[in-house]
């Protein structure tokens, strides 16, 4: 399981370009920071008020006044800045974050995303997710392809939306997909799975890219 998450996080990291301002969601997306390619410098934004977030704080050396959006103690890099929540979401909504990486309960072929509520069951709230996916220039959904076999990539989301038409890319352990006007385009696949298996695990018709290749590792 850890391997699958690392595989996904490592592939997401390859999407980041030198100089990008990046916001990582809680959980698997946070792991992307461990796989930034050499020679690529990115600036991590944390929506609770940091530009230039560094790695997690060493045990015993935490500053309890500095946390990330997942309430973990973190460090800041040289050149960092702290700000209030209105400024933070101005940065996010204003299109100054190049890439946001987050998980999904469901994502569909129109780029619609559902990840904040399961009515009657789980009501955690949207936190900053609605603003992030509306404002960031590129939205990458990083997640396991299915929920224990149940489809998460669908023709149409069943759960309430986080936002409509915002997802650019979906990266799972099975492959790399781009959301296009025509539908979900499979661009890279993990050779541990056949194309039939990937299609079977997907609740929308995949378009196979003419340039389909093995997933970059």
């Amino acid at each position: 399981m850890a391997d699958i998450k690392e595989l996904i996080a490592a592939r997401v990291a390859k999407e980041l370009k030198d100089g990008d301002v990046v916001n990582l969601g809680i959980g698997l997306p946070t792991m992307v920071a461990n796989f930034i390619p050499e020679g690529v410098d990115v600036v991590f934004q944390s929506e609770n008020g940091i530009m230039g977030m560094g790695p997690a704080a060493e045990k015993g050396r935490e500053d309890v006044d500095i946390i990330n959006a997942g309430a973990q103690y973190v460090t800041v890099n040289q050149g960092a800045m702290f700000f209030d929540s209105a400024t933070s979401f101005g940065i996010i909504r204003g299109g100054h974050v190049d890439v946001t990486v987050l998980g999904a309960l469901e994502v569909d072929q129109c780029g619609n995303l559902s990840n904040w509520i399961v009515p009657g069951k789980m009501v955690p709230g949207m936190g900053g997710a609605m603003d992030l996916v509306v404002g960031a220039k590129k939205v990458i959904v990083a997640m396991q392809h299915t929920q224990k076999g149940a489809h998460k990539i669908l023709g149409e989301c069943m759960l309430p939306y986080t936002a409509v038409g915002v997802v650019d890319m979906i990266i799972t352990e099975m492959g790399v997909m781009e959301v296009t006007k025509e539908g979900i385009l499979l661009k890279e696949y993990n050779p541990d799975y056949t194309l039939e298996q990937i299609q079977e695990a997907t609740g929308a018709q995949l378009i196979i890219s003419p340039d389909l290749r093995e997933m970059e590792r």
Partner: peptide
Amino acid sequence: CILVPQGTLAERV
């Protein structure tokens, strides 16, 4: 409980 997107909450205040 009234849930408000975080950026919207900050701007409403």
